[in-house]
Write a protein that binds this DNA or RNA. Structure first.
Lengths: 202, 202, 202, 202
DNA sequence: CATGAATGAGGCTTCATTCAT
DNA sequence: TATGAATGAAGCCTCATTCAT
């Protein structure tokens, strides 16, 4: 009995933690990490300030968890899309398409990852780097595969992977910050073609 | 009757202001804007805290001036390199080459512009956006010219310009944060080829 | 589920605010506004510096509230005394008697209003002027009534009202600053006679 | 020779000191002691900030000297007017007339003495008290003389003297702060009559 | 578990005073 | 003597975190 109780309790706890994270995401999407106070997050989550500290040891733990979660979500999304295809070029496309789809669906996520969180502090930048690297690694793997197959003449697959990812990043960031380009999905096509040409396809 | 030679004095003041900016650059390069206290800047510049306020009205004025200065420096550098060539493809190359050269020479500048300053606050992001847009605008002009000449099949020149700039940005950022790629100059060649192919050349 | 009895809690908060105001009154009575730091007020109130800001938005808000409160208290006191009599001469006497009684009872109040707060800044002087004017207005109304009844020959009722109030003010101030006259109640009689003669009675 | 030199130098020094005091008077008339910075005084006096300290040991020394000077000026003025008459009632009138004349002529003086300086700090209030007491003492002496001559029935001559002075003070202050009464000279007549009646004359 | 009042360290900024020229 | 840049103590205020209820 006690065991089941504990499970329920844990579940409830996790649910509340989720509530707080959701609230925090909303707030962080509009204001930078430093500008955002625990109080404002608590208000959005409809809890008392002190309650926050029952679920997170401090502000940094929260943002870390948020970003980690986003990272997992993003990665999961990308990987599941990649599994649907086999060709490396298609995998590249699937990765970025997954990214963009997710960011369109969860704009706050994109805002936090690409706009608000960079520059918080060194520890944080390291974490972001890690995330980006994961994506770049995937891309690089595709390129290396293509290379092996002789389909990518590519000089330096790491740099090419960075170029690939960076071009998407730039467009998405601009879309988030200024609404330019207006139609991100359409821009995706342009971007894809650009990069495929860059990779030597066509 | 001290300070009779007003010119020399003015010069000295400007030099001191420059010293402070230099010190601040160093500090900002290693720590985020928010983490950086006026005190730490003053210490690096070997002045008293109060002295800082003789040269800048506040912290924000300082970072604004720093970023503005960097922007001017960057733009001047890019434009002067572009003037040396006439072909649009060469201009594209010249722009990015200028960027990379400057960033290699002034690493703190790159760190501040690309890593530390983003995410400070909304007002600041707007300023950075402006800077990036200037660079993208230049790139887009080149592309539009190429388009007119029928040398760039390009779908959307704005998106393409973003892709172009973004690919460089990503590589430079990674180099700053992790030292990857080790040889930025060499990576530049790879990047350039990648993008020229992306633009349809070759 | 703490703080369930909202009423009690609110009451407690109000009480605390009152405590702070009381402490501040004590401090302000002995030191000028400018000399008084938030820290010293907090110490007197036995709270942390930050706690002060839970109750007042800043130092100016505090002194404003203090003076406003005192003003209300003084006016209430005066008006209630005036209501007990009908004759205008008696009203004049009632006003000043109320003043003096209150000031004897709450010496810190008198010190703040008459000694410490003047000279803080222009905005503040305006507020004090307003308070004094209220008292002078009341006095003037009495005089105008007497004039109508032909009992006050009075040339200029405004100036006479000022003279009336000013004579009390001077004596009270001296009493506060130097303990001269020692017996303020007795001085009140002298003052009252002086002014009644001045107003033409007797 | 050296002696004469020294004299000249001293004179020059005194002249400059006078310049600074004049400038300071102007500034203090418009802003409270605390609001007024040494820098602003120096600017008004067209000297450098550091120069100020060649003539005054610190800010407090300046305001002390200013107030002392004003005190001397006021007293001299009053005494010289009093000497022109012999009757005690006339002396009372002469005192106040001298005051008002001087204040009309040197409004900044009145503003400083009556509005800006009170409330600066305890040491300062003591000095102001001293000044006022001197005036009250003179008044009291007149009253005591009248008393001896049987012309003033007066109960307490000190309180009466305070009343006398306080009535003028109140009117002058209002005139300074709000321009009420508009015509101070005319108000003087009213005030004088009021007080003479108060003292039992007529 | 929840609450929100309380804490106090730490940042920014001002300005009287000093000092090198 | 004159200058004005430089100093640094001190004050205000914020906010992440703690704690009594």
């Amino acid at each position: 009995m006690a065991y089941r109780q504990t499970n329920k309790v844990k579940e409830k706890l996790e649910r509340k933690k989720g509530d707080i994270i959701r609230a925090a995401r909303e707030v962080f999407a509009e204001n930078s990490y430093q500008e955002t106070s625990i109080k404002s997050i608590a208000q959005k989550a409809k809890i008392a300030t002190g309650t926050f500290y029952l679920y997170f040891s401090n502000k940094e733990a929260l943002i870390n968890m948020i970003v980690d979660e986003m990272f997992q979500e993003l990665l999961k999304c990308i990987k599941s899309e990649r599994e649907k295809v086999t060709d490396s070029f298609e995998k590249l496309q699937a990765s970025m398409e997954a990214c963009i789809r997710l960011f369109i669906k969860e704009k706050s996520m994109a805002k936090i990852l690409l706009i608000q969180v960079p520059g918080v502090n060194n520890a944080f930048n390291a974490k972001l780097t890690e995330i980006e690297n994961e994506l770049i690694k995937l891309t690089k793997e595709d390129l290396d595969e293509l290379k092996e197959e002789g389909r990518f003449p590519g000089e330096d697959s790491l740099v090419s992977a960075m170029a690939f990812v960076g071009s998407f990043r730039q467009v998405i960031t601009s879309w988030l910050r200024e609404g330019q380009p207006e139609d991100l999905e359409k821009a995706f096509d342009t971007l894809m073609k650009y990069n495929l040409r860059g990779l030597g396809k066509l």
